[in-house]
Each structure stands twice: as structure tokens, then as C-alpha cells.
Design a protein around this nucleic acid. Structure first.
Lengths: 197, 197
DNA sequence: TCTTTTATGTAGCGTTCACTACATTTTCAT
DNA sequence: ATGAAAATGTAGTGAACGCTACATAAAAGA
């Protein structure tokens, strides 16, 4: 089972590992952002030449798309789990912000959220659009999870949650350590630990 | 009094108004961000040619610096006033977030905060540094204003305030209208309306 | 072996970028 | 009038960008 490269494809075999390359690209994009990573940077880091790059990935933006997907699977926040329905909203969001604080500072040279930072308009509209799509999907997941508990306030709370995550991502990129980021997250979840109005 | 252009400088007079040009540049940078505004965009918008541009402003990054300063003076949040010591922390921060909601959506084509968005690492390290300097100054003003009331928690609260402002700026750029932004600000200030622990 | 298929390395494409050399024009000071 | 000073328009610089033409190398199928 699993249709991973069992049959040999036919022609000259690829001299580098594609998945590994996507991982390296993900790290570069996360460190410096899409615009600040040039094709020369990428081919240099992968040890390949431009034709091999384009044969394997199509374009810089396409590779970015694969890096985003890989990030979402391997390092992105698991919203479904963190916002599981057995927790109260207060507990769930406190857990979410705590997880964000840890995740956004996990790699000292690649801080913040790749998706959130990528969704900010840069020079390339295609690349930015890919990140925005993922960001919207995340928002939808968050919104739906909240709606199970607070149906009418779901949109408003989702706005707040996305804003807090964006603020924490910004702060992480600004150099705040995990403890200061955690404090921001705890402060942000105070909005739910008391009131009801 | 005031040493505004009274004495005529000597040579050929400038064919355009420099301050007005800084204003146009400020608007362009605010709309698209530093990297996405090319010199061709700038000279086109100002109706001048590159030599006039460089004679007047020195470099793209220098003009950006002047645009940032102009923004801080004309459209930036007046932290000193908003965080005036006669208000409680809860009142002051609620007022700050309310003002941010309005300011960040005041121009439909140039949303968010120019300083915060500019401080995110782009391609140009010099331009980014100028924005970061202003951002740090703002943080210091906020921190000092808070310290007058909550001396030991000033840093932690300042982290939170800057993160909220960054999140609101992100949300504004994402297209949220003033009401949704206001709701985020109100939710964010709930952290201060109750607790004391 | 011989063809087909795919990936590779070399070299360079066209475009856009921020920025300038240079001659000219317009002003003030003498 | 004449020279100095400053800004202008024309035209183009070198560098970096994402990307590609093309011949060659390495594998599988016939």
C-alpha cells in the first residue's frame, strides 16, 4: 500500500531528494520570507542548478506552495485538537495561544508563523495568494470550532483569535522569547476567563 | 519667525513641492509597502525624473524615512494623549485600541499601521531598520506611560499592547472594516476590565 | 544495441531594479 | 552682462531577478 516511488520512472534519476528539498526551502522561506529568498539562494541551498529546480518544482511560487503545505502538516498548529469541543472556550483558547507561543519560537532562526507572515502582501501576488488561502482555511476551522460553543459570537471571536495569532507571530519575529510570548497569550485569553456580557 | 523657505536658495528653483511629494510617497508606501513601490512608481506619481528625485531625497530609503516621520506626526496614534495618566489602565488601553481601529481603517486603500507593517523584514534592511526604530520608540512611550500606573507589569503589558496593535494592523490590511476591528480592540481590552491577579 | 525518456550542467535570456553621467535650463549674485 | 549654483530631461549604467535553450548524461524498455 502507498504509492510511494516503487516503480522506477524511466529516464535519468533525480540526483537530489525532492521532499528534503521542500523542507530546506520551507526553512529558508520561514527565515527570510518569500521575497527575500532568491532563486540563487534556493538552488545554492539545494546544490542544484536552475533547470533541475524548474523540472522538479515548476516555479518559485509553486515550491513555496509545497513548502506552505508541508509547514501546515508538520509544524502548523493543530486547531482541531487544540479547540476540541470538550474544553471550554476559555480553556481551548488558552491552550491555542500557549501552543502558538511555543510553535512561533521553536526555531530561533525561523520565528513566527510561515502562513501568517506569508499572507502579508509582498511583491509576488501569486505567492501571497497561496498563503492567504491557507490562512482563510485556518480561520474557517477556528470559526467552526468556536461556533460549536458560541454560535452567534463565533465570527467576532474568530476575528479576535486570528488577530492575536498575528500579533504573536509579529512579536516572535521581533525577537521576543517564548516566555514573553506566553505572557501575551495568557493576557489575550483573559478576555474569556471572566466575562460573559 | 520660523525658518521656512524665506530666503531664495540660489540656483534653479525646484519644479515640485517637496512636502507634497513626501505625502504622496507616504500614501504609496502605506498602500503597497516599501518593496512593492518602485522608483518608477514614485517618479511617475510625483511627475518628476530620477535625477530630480535623487537631488531632492537622496535615496528611496531616505524618502521612506521622511514618509515614516510624516506619518508619525500626522496620522500616527498619539500615545501620550491616549494613555494620559488621569485614565485608568483599562480606560487608557480601551481608548488606544479604539483609536487604532479607526486609524487603521481611515484610508480604505492604505490600511493598517505604516510603521508596524514597515518594520516587518522586507528585502531592504535599511528601510526596515528605520521603521523598526520608530516602532521601538513607540513601544518605549507606551511602556513608560504604563509604568506610571503598573510599574512592575509595565514590560509585560507593553508586549501585549504592541502585539494587539500588530494584530489589529494585520487584520486591517486583511480587509476587516472598522466595526470588526473595534470588536477586536474591545475584546483585547477585556484583559484589563476585570482581573487584578 | 538502440531508442526513448528524464534530469543535468553550461550559459544566457529578457526584465526590472535602484541609481547616475552629462549636458542644459533656470535662477541669484555680482 | 556674466559667472556661480542648483534642478532638470535624456539616456543609460551595472546588478539582480525569475526563468529557459540547448546539448549532454544516465537510466529503462525494446
Amino acid at each position: 500500500m502507498g504509492d510511494t516511488k516503487n516503480v522506477k520512472p524511466r529516464g535519468r534519476p533525480r540526483a537530489f531528494d525532492v521532499d528534503e528539498a521542500v523542507g530546506k526551502a520551507q526553512a529558508l522561506f520561514h527565515q527570510r520570507g518569500y521575497d527575500a529568498v532568491s532563486l540563487t539562494d534556493l538552488t545554492g541551498a539545494l546544490g542544484i542548478n536552475p533547470p533541475s529546480f524548474y523540472a522538479a518544482f515548476g516555479s518559485k511560487a509553486d515550491l513555496y506552495g509545497r513548502a506552505l503545505e508541508r509547514y501546515a502538516k508538520t509544524e502548523g498548529l493543530d486547531f482541531e485538537r487544540l479547540l476540541a469541543p470538550e474544553r471550554s472556550i476559555a480553556e481551548a483558547l488558552a491552550a491555542l495561544f500557549e501552543a502558538a507561543a511555543v510553535a512561533y519560537t521553536a526555531h530561533s532562526e525561523a520565528t513566527g508563523c510561515l502562513v501568517i507572515e506569508g499572507a502579508r502582501g509582498g511583491t509576488d501576488a501569486v505567492a501571497c495568494g497561496k498563503a492567504k488561502t491557507l490562512s482563510r482555511q485556518s480561520r474557517q476551522v477556528v470559526r467552526d470550532a468556536i461556533a460549536r460553543r458560541e454560535t452567534d459570537r463565533a465570527d467576532e471571536i474568530a476575528d479576535y483569535v486570528m488577530a492575536v495569532l498575528a500579533g504573536m507571530s509579529t512579536s516572535a519575529r521581533d525577537g521576543l522569547d517564548v516566555d514573553r510570548l506566553r505572557a501575551i497569550g495568557r493576557r489575550a485569553s483573559l478576555a474569556f476567563t471572566h466575562q460573559k456580557a
